[in-house]
Design a protein around this nucleic acid. Structure first.
Length: 346
DNA sequence: TAAGCGTGGCG
DNA sequence: TCGCCAAGCTT
């Protein structure tokens, strides 16, 4: 390995030995490797999700389901409800499927090779490499958004994403040490979170400043170059609040697609124009409220009207849920916003 | 390859 | 207020 390449790993690992963040799923340098179950769970939770958001959910999940056997035996609805608020709900569905595959096909233990990990539900290239390196000490190359940014800057890679992925991956491989690869990637994540940040990197604090071609250009923040993002459309919908006594009607959304498998308030279609009372869950006197609920999803912005009906017994498909225990239903954020609006307006 | 898929924080 | 961004995966 060229001298510059090996010195990057050495410098970063030395920095990590001193600066590593203490995290509930992480073994600090010099301590035994962490429980693969905890590494797996944390890696899935951390996909596109910040450490601050994951912390309390990780604590709740590991307390309730401490290992693969417990998780594989969990009730689907309980897992989905526990995941509520984390977003990207396919992760929760895949989590269940993965735990059951681990128990059924791997004797209750996570396999320790990248290829076998990659074959499990919800585990892609990055997560397979991260688990192999962090939990099993393999020399795997785990390229997440942090590593992508740090490496693109270190080597001043001018090709734009996503086309640059190949070059970045190759550069990352070139600095991967035979030992402590897992620590190197975790170090890059800490570095990317605290120092090599997207907008205004703190190069004066960076242990790799002397190695960094991007810094040498005078504009490290311009790496990696990204293709312009397409702006999402605006869509309109209606959220239905149907009360019976002190209960409200909830439904279970279709198993796949947006908010798939989650408990929810009934909604109509989400379209380019406000759908009004189309697809109402009951034929009754709906009161359309003035308040609207706006919510931003990854690829579109949603503005929902709120339709409220109270009193009388309605024959509807769904689940009547106590209003004063709505926080236990595991509703995605969109519906929590609607519930708050109803509470506000009475 | 590109699109679909949540949410909260930050500048 | 708004756009960007985050320990990505699936189809």
């Amino acid at each position: 390995m060229p001298a510059k390449r090996s010195s990057i790993a050495d410098r970063l690992l030395a920095w990590y030995d001193v600066q590593a963040r203490a995290l509930p799923w992480r073994a600090l340098p010099g301590t035994p490797a962490p429980d693969p179950y905890r590494v797996w769970l944390s890696e899935i939770m951390l996909q596109q999700t910040t450490v601050a958001t994951v912390r309390p959910k990780f604590a709740a999940f590991t307390e309730r389901w401490p290992d693969f056997a417990a998780f594989a035996a969990a009730d689907d609805a309980e897992v989905m409800a526990a995941w509520a608020g984390l977003g990207y709900y396919a992760r929760a569905r895949n989590l269940i499927a993965c735990a059951r595959a681990v128990v059924a096909d791997h004797g209750g233990r996570l396999p320790d090779t990248e290829a076998e990990l990659r074959a499990l539900p919800g585990i892609g290239d990055y997560t397979a490499a991260a688990i192999a390196a962090i939990a099993f000490g393999r020399r795997a190359v785990a390229v997440d958004a942090n590593v992508e940014r740090v490496v693109a800057r270190l080597f001043a890679i001018r090709e734009s994403l996503p086309a640059a992925r190949g070059a970045i991956r190759q550069a990352a491989g070139s600095i991967t040490p035979d030992a402590r690869a897992g620590d190197l990637w975790q170090a890059m994540m800490d570095l990317g979170q605290a120092i090599c940040t997207p907008r205004a990197p703190k190069c004066l604090l960076c242990p790799l400043a002397q190695d960094c071609d991007g810094r040498a250009t005078g504009a490290p923040e311009t790496f990696p170059v990204k293709a312009p993002k397409r702006v999402g459309p605006q869509r309109y919908g209606t959220i239905f609040w149907l009360e019976r006594g002190r209960e409200v009607l909830l439904v279970r959304r279709a198993p796949k697609g947006l908010l798939g498998g989650m408990r929810a308030l009934p909604t109509g279609p989400w379209e380019a124009a406000p759908p009004g009372l189309a697809a109402a869950p009951a034929d009754t006197d709906w009161e359309l409220r003035n308040a609207t609920i706006s919510h931003v999803f990854t690829h579109f912005r949603l503005i929902c009207a709120l339709a409220v009906a109270r009193g009388g017994a309605h024959e509807t498909a769904g689940e009547w849920w106590p209003i004063d225990r709505l926080d236990e239903a595991g509703l995605p954020t969109l519906f929590l916003k609607a519930a708050r609006a109803v509470r506000r307006e009475g």
